[in-house]
Design a protein around this nucleic acid. Structure first.
Lengths: 359, 359
DNA sequence: CTGTTAGCGCTTTCAC
DNA sequence: GTGAAAGCGCTAACAG
């Protein structure tokens, strides 16, 4: 198999039929069309800088020969790849797939492709991809996590102007100002807690994500503010943390139920997955949702509408986040001015059946 | 921002500190170390072909200058990219993320990176990525769907030797023999149905995936065989089809429940997502699982253990499938012989609470 | 083991 | 508007 080195062949589109033929280079086309390689190159890249007559000649030769530019050579020459790296904290977390899809849609529409970097709690891998871009194998990086894939001095407060195009979505570093697109996580948490409070809950527990995540910091702050609003100034014993996963939700909820203290009447979680994990424990213990405990998630992933009861949650415009993030990346790539302020997209509550007034 | 063109800078690792500096080329290192560029290149690519003394000199110069090879130039020269394209039918389908993770793990361990191609029911996009590889922007393609991203004559029965390295996982074309790694879908369906039959079910409906998918063809065939085994020779009115999604499961189950015919006592679905969709309808109609209807899924996605009741399902070794697929890709890339027979990985049933003897 | 040399295929001045 | 020519930075013969 593959006895003939495949590299010698390229794709030929001809009259709607296709076949692989031996590599044709720009030289072949040039001599075929009776012009110089420069003219062929121009015809393909900047057609209007070439007379109609020559253009026709060249295009005819291109069609006939099935010439397809060697992009590796072009990239090398142009020092760009039309590829951008997307750093994903955990590709297995379905929250990210829609964001990736949004990025991919815009990327694709603009001639870019995305190279996936699955970080998996391994900051070192982020750095690897940073190097990758530094080596010009990609034109920029969009990070969906909070790690900065470039080396920087601690304490640095400004964006290093020498960094390659870099955009952050959902999460952000919290220290260095980087163009970021996300929702207002603090306000979202406030909205969620106030909704629960509006139902009459006061004993509201919060299962947050990793404590060191800026995003979770914001949600926690929102939770606290809202609790204060309803007169609860101390949230001691009410805040737990997981890692956004189903398992960690189960785990945190178990802790909550095992605690001697009075059972919360509502639990707000920082991800739908954790809510679903929590839901299972609650039901296993013979308690009902929302009868005994109201449950509120975050993200509005597909499955949240399909649990029993369907989950009340905070909707994040995931595809849109991805799209806008890629848009900012394009701005950067095309030297347009980009604010490194956070760009905030709207969230909203999705009211389903997992929440109700306390029993 | 980015007033200094970032392309002029590269990453320097130096005494654990890092900073971007102006580009250093192999020439600089060569003159710094007092050797030729060829020697620098060799030192970096094949260190043992260089004397220890020179190696040290060169590495010192590399360290001092912060030289990082321009991979674009290298790729161009070597005509390879160390990148492989992964074609995903729908990245939003959480079934695929673990497979991608498996691919990524092996790819990464071998110095490869993966470029994600989200097909989204759009065969044309597959072809685009095929061209992409033909243009040498990637070294090979792993497809998780059934589309062949290369042009081929209908009726062709052999693998075109001129195609770039190509591997298929989970699904397969069904016509052209391509190295494929998957489970034995027919046997898996047989196992599932026989398990249900063993519980006493005979009226077993099947919600399959898209009818034109070879994988679904296999599952259907397994379902039919197993049904025959228990004496059910006609499965008319028992087979439905969706597209693997939650919604399509809901939809198919609604159809089943609305049908006049006697209600099936068990429903087997070709994906967990469809089972979860079906589960919701069943419960909404006031029926119980497994009390009134036993439900069995396929895939063993994370969420299946967290529904209520937890879903009995067929486990697919998803990470492993991805790993092996990438392994085959490596074989191809390194000219090792690879069988284009299907490579079958073991599946197994995961018994949870959604199935029981008929009421 | 190391240096010389000759490009890879393309883009891009710079003349004409 | 077009062609000649000079590389981009690296690797791979080929000598020595």
């Amino acid at each position: 198999m593959f006895s003939t080195p495949w590299r010698l062949f390229i794709l030929l589109r001809l009259h709607n039929r296709k076949a692989y033929f031996q590599m044709t280079s720009i030289k072949d086309v040039a001599s075929m069309a009776g012009v110089s390689t420069a003219t062929v190159s121009r015809t393909l890249a900047e057609p209007d800088k070439v007379s109609e007559k020559t253009r026709k000649k060249v295009l005819a030769a291109v069609g006939k020969s099935g010439y397809v530019a060697n992009t590796l050579a072009r990239n090398f020459r142009r020092k760009r790849t039309n590829t951008i790296v997307v750093l994903v904290p955990d590709i297995t977390n379905s929250f990210f797939s829609n964001i990736i899809q949004g990025i991919d849609a815009v990327a694709h529409a603009n001639g870019y492709r995305i190279l996936l970097g699955d970080i998996r709690q391994n900051a070192e891998r982020g750095i690897e991809y940073g190097d990758f871009v530094a080596q010009k194998q990609a034109d920029g990086i969009i990070s969906l996590g909070r790690n900065i894939p470039f080396p920087y001095r601690k304490g640095r407060k400004t964006l290093d102007p020498k960094w390659p195009p870099f955009v952050t979505a959902c999460e952000y570093d919290g220290i260095i100002p980087v163009p970021t697109v996300c929702i207002d996580n603090e306000q979202a948490a406030i909205d969620a807690v106030q909704y629960l409070a509006g139902l009459g809950h006061r004993n509201i527990a919060f299962i947050n994500g990793p404590a060191d995540s800026p995003l979770c910091h914001d949600r926690l702050s929102g939770y606290r503010k809202a609790m204060k609003t309803i007169g609860v100034t101390s949230t001691r014993g009410l805040v737990y943390s997981g890692d956004f996963s189903l398992e960690s939700g189960t785990c945190a909820m178990t802790t909550i139920l095992d605690a001697r203290a009075d059972r919360p009447s509502a639990v707000f979680t920082a991800s739908d997955a954790m809510a679903i994990g929590a839901l299972q424990v609650i039901k296993t213990r013979g308690l009902s949702v929302p009868g005994d405990i109201s449950l509120m998630g975050f993200d509005d992933i597909n499955f949240s509408a399909y649990c029993d009861p369907p989950l009340t949650t905070v909707h994040q415009p995931r595809n849109h986040i991805g799209e806008i993030a890629m848009q900012r990346m394009l701005d950067l790539l095309e030297q347009r001015a980009v604010s490194s302020e956070r760009e905030v997209l709207p969230h909203h509550l999705v009211l389903r059946a997992s929440t109700a007034a306390p029993g």
